[in-house]
Simulated scan of single mutants.
Amino acid sequence: MKYYIIIFLLITTICFAQKTTLYTIGDSTMANKKDPDKNPEHGWAQVLQPFFKDNVIVENKAVNGRSTKSFINENRWDSIYKKLKRGDYVFIEFGHNDEKIEDSTRYTNPHTLYRYNLIRFVKESREKGAIPILFTSIARRNFNEKGVLVPTHGDYPLETRMVAQEYKVPFIDLEYYTEILEQSYGPEKSKQLHLHFKAGENAYYDKEKADDTHLSLLGAMSIAQIVVNQIKLLEDPSLGKLQKSIK
């Protein structure tokens, strides 16, 4: 009897000790940056780990400059697919580089290849028993002279929304929530969310910097907080484990 009790306790301990991996795939708005202690630029997935308890491990696989097309063609998705296990999560946010119509290695038609690449990520995640979550691209800081935030992503967010609806994928409309974030700061203060420095103002840059796409630490932390807040609100039983792991 003691033998069986010991075996049961060992199995129970192993089951509870098993960690969940949260993979994040996307572009530079999510990606880890070099020299994080010195580099003003951060990806929002780079700062995601502290929002979760120790039973969730964030594996940030987002890479600067990648579109759905180049991410697949460079075998980055295959390397993740091979490691996916039941109960893992996959955060998917692309679009910024899929828009680059002048670059044949990255551009995708939003209504065809971009759409079908998203569907591939969803289907293949589910094949492994993992749970995909789709995100629209974060908004750029693009205020016009009247102080109106003008969208820049064309039909890519629309296709993401449609794939999420059609395939019943947990979905966070990050374009919408980051538009609200940008507008809450306004045309001038929203520079704090991005990379705006005069020449010599920051030691990491030797020239003036005015980048309205990529994120400062404040911007990355703000968006990571939005993501976590929205995960809490999603009514999907497949997210229960992840929701319980939020600090």
Rank of each mutant, 00 (worst) to 15 (best):
K53C: 07
E93L: 03
T29P: 12
N97D: 08
T178G: 06
E127P: 14
K82D: 09
T108Q: 07
D212L: 14
V122K: 10
Q18M: 09
E159M: 04
F121M: 12
Y185T: 15
K207T: 11
S104W: 13
P50S: 04
Y3N: 13
D211Y: 10
I231R: 00
G95Y: 13
V169F: 10
G95C: 10
Y177K: 09
F197T: 02
E93R: 04
V63N: 00
I25K: 00
S137V: 13
H42L: 02
E59C: 07
T160P: 00
T21G: 01
I133Y: 05
A31N: 03
N32R: 09
L233Q: 07
F16E: 10
K207N: 13
V228S: 09
R161M: 11
I180L: 14
K207P: 10
F135G: 03
Y3R: 14
S238E: 15
N73W: 00
Y116A: 05
G26P: 07
E179Y: 12
K83R: 11
S245C: 11
A139I: 01
S238I: 12
F71D: 02
L215H: 08
I72G: 02
V150D: 06
K128V: 04
I6W: 04
G43E: 00
D155K: 12
Y205S: 01
H42Y: 15
A220N: 05
R76D: 08
I57H: 06
